[in-house]
């Protein structure tokens, strides 16, 4: 079950690396949020506890509803163009992503011989982290950067569940809070910058350097 969900997660990563619409990124974030929440809920099929349901529920609320909604609001408010403006062509980007994922999957299958880990969730999580970074590096729009950060965060989540069967809840809540702050800051920064600069591309941010 976990493997199936992880592979679904990987597929969403492929989709995100070829799409050229900002809206699609938000949809992918929603899908990934659902996948992660389901993944966390799996243990409760066998044993239900009201206390343990808090985290998946929060995850669902934040990752599937609040953050995508907020990003959509920012897109609408600031009238951001719908294309993502990549610096690398999608047809070049996809092979790089695939190559990276192959390397990561191979590496983690070798690693699994010496240490105990679930190969597929581990490798998917790790791939998400790296691809999140790729996305940040190869896209100009700030709003896409936010999405890249969030994909990275999802990767860390998956990665965490693969390494330890049960992460301490405080740490997971901590990362959630962290990313929440990032999204808000970005939103605020975008709002502020929009009054000073034309467009929302990182290339303009260079002018802020001292």
């Amino acid at each position: 079950m976990e493997n199936v969900l992880s592979i679904l997660f990987c597929l969403s990563l492929f989709y995100v690396s070829v799409t050229s619409r900002v809206k699609a990124y938000v949809t992918v974030l929603r899908v990934q949020g659902i996948i992660l929440s389901v993944l966390l809920m799996i243990p409760f099929i066998y044993k239900f506890s009201i206390f343990g349901i808090i985290l998946p529920a929060t995850l669902l609320l934040v990752k599937v509803y609040l953050i995508p909604r907020y990003i959509n609001k920012v897109i609408l408010d600031l009238d951001i163009k719908r294309r993502i403006e990549p610096t690398i062509q999608q047809m070049v980007f996809l092979p790089i992503v695939i190559a990276t994922m192959v390397i990561i999957f191979l590496a983690s299958s070798i690693l699994s011989k010496s240490t105990e880990l679930d190969v597929i969730p581990f490798a998917s999580g790790f791939s998400a982290i790296v691809i999140g970074i790729y996305i940040i590096m190869s896209r100009k729009k700030l709003i896409v950067h936010v999405c890249g950060f969030l994909i990275m965060e999802n990767g860390i989540f998956l990665f965490g569940t693969a390494v330890a069967s049960e992460l301490p809840m405080m740490i997971e809540l901590g990362t959630l809070l962290d990313i929440f702050v990032v999204v808000f800051l970005m939103g605020i920064a975008l709002n502020k910058i929009s009054s000073t600069f034309e467009g929302f591309e990182v290339t303009h941010l260079g002018r802020l350097k001292d």
């Binding site: 590096m137 190869s138 950067h145 290339t203 941010l205 260079g206 002018r207």
Partner: peptide, 9 residues
Amino acid sequence: QTDIRYYIG
């Protein structure tokens, strides 16, 4: 560099 993308790189 002035661009955050290089730092991430």
